[in-house]
């Protein structure tokens, strides 16, 4: 199943992001699948250090390594896009 169709995977990704960025006051289930994570609309208020933390979370929890910030910006846009990258089929 492609990642964006896999609700359980998407919830795990959301929980990882909230944990790595210490945004515990946000409920993972309330985070939309199609919102740009690094935009004002997400309500997460993430910065470059958060990007590095998420990068590390992807490595340790999902065994995904994103080489540099360009790769990161290409992949970590919305939860749907990230989920498709983590689980392409």
């Amino acid at each position: 199943m492609i990642g964006s169709q896999d609700d359980a995977l998407k919830l795990r990704l959301k929980a990882m992001i909230i944990e790595e960025c210490e945004k515990e006051d946000i409920n993972p289930e309330e985070l939309a699948d199609d919102v740009e994570l690094f935009s004002d609309a997400s309500g997460l208020e993430l910065d470059s250090l958060d990007a590095l933390q998420i990068s590390m979370g992807l490595q340790t929890q999902f065994k995904i390594r994103l080489g540099d910030s360009k790769d990161f910006r290409r992949v970590v846009t919305t939860i749907n896009n990230l989920a498709d990258y983590v689980q392409p089929e």
Partner: peptide, 10 residues
Amino acid sequence: KQPPKPVDFI
């Protein structure tokens, strides 16, 4: 056996 988390490193 893991690298440091960026926030811990800082």
